[in-house]
């Protein structure tokens, strides 16, 4: 397994400190406008520029930096849309147009929250729609549509999103399904080059979500191992029972495999296999999170089903994130077509 460098540990820890205990902010969310105080701090510290070149006012970080930081920060359960911000900044920078440039400046300053909406399958939009996660945060939604020369990257303002119903998600956030009427929104960029930048950002979203999912798995599993050693029944710690030991070992192996794949995918960013690698990482991390988190709840018994214990928000965040930025099923389906 790839361990973080000392610099990455410093970065990760400073972010974790900045985010603090996200659970209280998470529970406060009721679908209404979120409190932006922590988000402004995050932007003032420069985090949305992690992946931007230094020439563009960023930190010149790599995909490996991103996964190390997001894996560590996930357990804070902070509701701020960090994954989306990290992945969207390079897209706006790559557009090379005045509106995109202005949007990026506002985003980095913490004044405007720009979130990507992605085409996704939903029974609520059988004819197709663009799903916007963390919708209450979005001042602007970025949508890419069309192919090749016909590709257009447009920005919708919050006023243009209002008609789409806001639906709460189980992690305390909310989503909207946006549609893109002809001529709607403000054009940020078009053509094949813009499409390429858009797909690169989609890869980063998947990779970032995958790293966060592995971080959630790590936290939930650590809690479970601790509980197995602490909880006594039938006169001994339940962690001494072989049935639970072997399940715990399987969960450990699943976590290790998912984390290895996420790190490997980060090493593929910028190469020929970037698209495949990020789709694989997202599919694997999502499936692992769904599987391991369920076992964590089961192995805790009734306390695992209680909302008063931290496992509950970890579980709900993992389930939500598994379906965000490319469902595992969609990622695998894409791979099957290319393979």
């Amino acid at each position: 397994m790839i361990a973080p460098t000392p610099e990455q540990v410093l970065m990760r820890d400073s972010l974790i400190q900045l985010l603090g205990d996200g659970v209280s902010r998470m529970r406060g969310a009721d679908g209404g406008p979120p409190d932006r105080a922590v988000w402004v701090d995050i932007c003032e510290a420069g985090w949305p520029g992690l992946l931007l070149p230094e020439a563009s006012g960023g930190w010149g970080g790599t995909a490996i930096d991103m996964v190390m930081v997001l894996e560590g920060a996930a357990a804070t359960l902070a509701p701020e849309p960090l994954i989306a911000a990290l992945a969207t900044a390079p897209l706006l920078a790559a557009c090379g147009t005045e509106p995109a440039h202005a949007l990026l400046a506002n985003m980095l300053a913490g004044q405007t929250v720009v979130l990507p909406a992605e085409m996704a399958i939903s029974p609520l939009a059988p004819d197709g729609g663009f799903v916007l996660f963390d919708a209450p945060w979005a001042d602007v939604a970025v949508i890419g549509a069309g192919q090749g020369d016909g590709f257009r990257l447009v920005a919708l303002s919050s006023a243009e999103m209002e008609d789409a119903p806001l639906r709460r998600t189980i992690d305390g956030g909310a989503q909207r399904i946006l549609s893109l009427a002809a001529g709607a929104g403000r054009l940020l960029a078009e053509g094949p080059k813009a499409a390429q930048a858009f797909y690169a950002t989609r890869d980063l979203l998947r990779l970032g979500a995958a790293a966060s999912l592995v971080g959630l798995v790590a936290r939930a599993f650590a809690l479970t191992v601790e509980y197995l050693g602490m909880r006594s029944q039938f006169g001994q710690p339940i962690g001494a029972f072989q049935a639970l030991q072997h399940r715990a070992a399987s969960m450990h192996v699943a976590h290790a495999a998912a984390w290895a794949l996420v790190c490997e995918a980060a090493l593929a960013v910028g190469g020929d296999k970037e698209r495949v690698a990020c789709a694989m990482a997202k599919a694997k991390a999502s499936a692992t999170a769904r599987g391991v988190l369920k076992d964590c709840v089961q192995m805790h018994g009734a306390i695992g089903f209680s909302d008063e214990y931290v496992l509950a928000p970890l579980f709900r965040r993992a389930v939500t994130l598994a379906s965000a930025f490319g469902t595992p099923e969609a990622c695998l389906a894409e791979l099957g077509c290319e393979g």
Partner: peptide, 10 residues
């Protein structure tokens, strides 16, 4: 493909 990629990574 995904499972073998994960093993290779590990």
């Amino acid at each position: 493909e995904t499972e073998v990629a994960a093993l290779t990574a590990a």
